[in-house]
Amino acid sequence: MLIFSGKNGEMLSENIWGEKMKAAILQMEGTNCEEESYLAFKHFGIDVEYVHINLLKKGKKSLEDYEVLFIPGGFSAGDYVRAGSIFAARLKAAAWKSLVKFVEDENKRVIGVCNGFQVLIELGFLPGTNGISSVPQAALATNNSNRFECRWVYVRNERKTHFTSLAPDVLSLPVAHAEGRFITTPKIMDEIVANKQIVLRYISPDGSEPEYPWDPNGSMAHIAGIVNSYGNILGLMPHPERAFYWYHHPDWSRKKRGVGDGYYIFKSLIESMH
């Protein structure tokens, strides 16, 4: 695959879709990874906008106008109750019908990163083993270490999806969360596995079964990211937007890269809509 990398380490921007494709980055008080995410979409020439939840509520912006919905990380409303639950409740109140229409359109894509993943679970979109669930089917519980941790991990790309088709087998990405331990019931876990919904799993650097800190939170089946059963919604705890450029990686002075590993998630997503 061609990597658009200049000889001095700059990443030349790629314009795959012109200004035709529109992406919305959702905002509310406490979302805070929107800027990195914005730059990642901009890199591909996507017409990307910040959309505050109040603008949806007041009808000043409409989800119908976008092809991609990105729910960024952060601490929406402070996450003083279960992470993501207030954001989800506010989204439901503001734009439930258009949201459902959006995710049921298989030509559209939704990504939730970190707090965004928590929101997608609270909304019942993920795991979504049989479509949208009226109650959450899983939870992202407090890390086994019982504290917020910011560190880089390795994840294995389990299968080619809309979001990972161009990604290498192993990616290095940062996590930064206190609640990221994926848990669910044995029945739903069976469905997730049967539907092949697991996309990213934590692994140790030598490829073996990961222990803490390589699995930073103690997730069931070491799950770092999953898609819904239709494959158009991705939720993941690691932050691809913070690993977009080679210089985002902590070991760039030890290992040469043309692009950051998170780049491949965005690239796959955009190519999948071609």
Binding site: C33, E35, E36, L39, W152, S172, P174, A176, D251
Partner: peptide, 16 residues
């Protein structure tokens, strides 16, 4: 790491 501007980190070396 938030904001994606930290290019030399407070902890340096081999990951982990």
């Amino acid at each position: 790491e938030v904001q994606g501007r930290t290019v030399v980190k407070p902890l340096q070396g081999v990951i982990g």
